[in-house]
Amino acid sequence: MYETLEIEHNGPVATIWMNRPEVFNAFNEQLIADLSDACSVLDADQTVRVVVLAGRGRHFSAGADLNWMKRASAYGEAENLEDSRRFARMLHALSEMSKPTIARVQGAALGGGTGLAAACDMAVASADAVFSTSEVKFGIIPSVISPYVLRAIGPRHALRYFQSAERISADRALLIGLVSEVTPVDALDAGIATLIDALIAGAPQAQKAAKDLIAAVNGRTIDDVVIEETAQRIARQRATDEARDGIVAFLEKRTPAWLL
Rank of each mutant, 00 (worst) to 15 (best):
L195A: 04
I196K: 00
D197R: 09
D197C: 07
L199V: 02
L199C: 04
I200Q: 00
A201M: 09
A201K: 10
G202S: 13
G202F: 12
A203I: 04
A203K: 01
A203R: 02
P204T: 02
P204S: 00
Q205R: 13
A206C: 07
Q207Y: 14
Q207K: 03
A209G: 01
A210Q: 11
K211C: 01
D212W: 04
D212H: 05
D212M: 07
L213V: 05
I214E: 11
I214R: 13
I214T: 09
A215L: 15
A215Q: 09
A215M: 11
A216E: 14
A216P: 10
V217G: 01
N218F: 08
N218M: 07
N218K: 11
N218H: 09
R220C: 03
R220F: 05
T221F: 14
T221V: 15
I222L: 12
D223S: 00
D223H: 01
V225I: 12
V225P: 04
V225G: 05
V226E: 11
I227L: 14
I227G: 01
I227Y: 09
E228M: 05
E228C: 02
E229Y: 09
E229W: 11
E229P: 05
T230E: 05
T230I: 15
T230Q: 06
T230G: 02
A231M: 12
Q232Y: 09
I234Y: 05
A235K: 08
Q237I: 04
Q237R: 08
R238G: 05
R238I: 11
